[in-house]
Design a protein around this nucleic acid. Structure first.
Lengths: 164, 164
DNA sequence: ATATAATCTCTCAATGATTGACATTCTTTA
DNA sequence: TAAAGAATGTCAATCATTGAGAGATTATAT
């Protein structure tokens, strides 16, 4: 039935912790997140791009270090051209998810803020994720959860170093 | 400077483990993964969709339980229409990443296999991720890593339940 | 057997997001 | 004050995606 491909025996013999497991588990989780984001975008009549941009605006608004998001910063962060960025922000603004505010100190730049509508939107979007997270959390002790948080933080630190 | 939005103080006072941390950390990791995938797709002259499809084909080819991927299954998994799926597979086949093989037992279905070129492609794609994972792993004991694996597996289990 | 329904993949015109070069507005530097 | 630089926006062309349907194959019922 299955034509014999080169037998890519994916699991080496000595793999107590699951060397492969990490990549597989992380990739699968990533795919699930993307699926949920995709579905949410669809129900809201938005695109995945729009939702990702919206989240970035939200996160930047929360993180005081960076200041509010700007089209230029978002453009670089999302690897979009200026035309696409403008169109994306137009959609988000037209649907009332974000506001564009000219900066007072440098009138070239535009500050992006999430509107009230976006708050509910984000809540809805993250509800299933939050529920899943809670359900998963419930099965671990505090000490174990501390380990997981440490690991996630460390992963993120490492991943941001992979900017070529 | 920052016009005072409703002060969404994101961190409740009592948050020993980081109730928020989980969502933030997971979202950020997701964004990093997507960025790497996006960049890789760009260097290969592919689209993010194509890369995601390629990975799905690869994973299915490894996981003997399900059998090789088919356009229909991939279509559902990726929430694409048939037209988009065909176009995506056309691109992947034309660039030599996958092969389409008519199934012998049911000649309506097509089996998708990754070509040799895709192997190298996948290796390149996952190299930085693997390196990051290894670097992160190195800072944890075996017991701790077991906890993380358990958590990731549990998260995936919970997330797949969020199929509405 | 034979027709009918169901399944799987693909085609194609229409839609619409993205690209890439350029324009516009504003700031900084010489 | 002029010129260079920076941030955002405009617009025609490009190309992925949609959505309805066709074609080919298998399953079901009469």
């Amino acid at each position: 039935m299955r034509d014999t491909d080169s037998p890519s025996s994916s699991l080496p013999a000595d793999d107590p912790i699951g060397l492969q497991s990490f990549a597989v588990l992380l990739r699968r989780m990533n795919a699930e997140f993307n699926r949920i984001a995709q579905e949410f975008a669809h129900t809201q009549g938005l695109h995945l791009t729009d939702v990702q941009a919206l989240i970035a605006v939200l996160d930047a608004d929360d993180a005081e270090e960076t200041g509010p998001m700007t089209p230029g910063r978002l453009r670089k962060q999302m690897n979009l051209t200026s035309g696409a960025m403008t169109a994306c922000l137009d959609r988000l603004e037209k649907t009332g998810h974000i506001r564009r505010v000219r900066a007072a100190d440098d009138r070239r730049v535009v500050h992006l803020h999430y509107a009230q509508a976006a708050k509910q939107v984000a809540r809805d979007y993250f509800r299933p994720l939050a529920q899943s997270t809670d359900a998963a959390r419930a099965r671990f002790s505090d000490d174990e959860l501390h380990v997981v948080v440490r690991f996630l933080a460390e992963m993120n630190r490492q991943l941001t170093l992979v900017r070529r």
